[in-house]
Amino acid sequence: MIKAEDYFEEVRELDGIPVRITVYKISGEFHCHIFNADAGATIARCSAGDRETALQVALQKAAKRLHRSIIR
């Protein structure tokens, strides 16, 4: 029987853009998802054996992707 553990969610700014971050553990693996705060589309994700790696890699991917997005 598996379930999500240590469910965590927060909204923070990344390069001035609000993003929603969720991290949880399933079956010993940590999953981090980063969504733009509005609309809520996934902009980065990472799964790793420890929480910090999942979070940091996802944040790096998100920063790279957000940097490419056009703001006028």
Partner: peptide, 24 residues
């Protein structure tokens, strides 16, 4: 029902997504 920044034309699409229209 889009974000305020899309509605006002400040951005053409939500952060991190590809631009898909000509005007905001």
């Amino acid at each position: 029902v889009r974000s305020n920044d899309e509605y006002t034309g400040k951005i053409l699409s939500p952060a991190g997504l590809a631009e898909t229209c000509q005007r905001g």
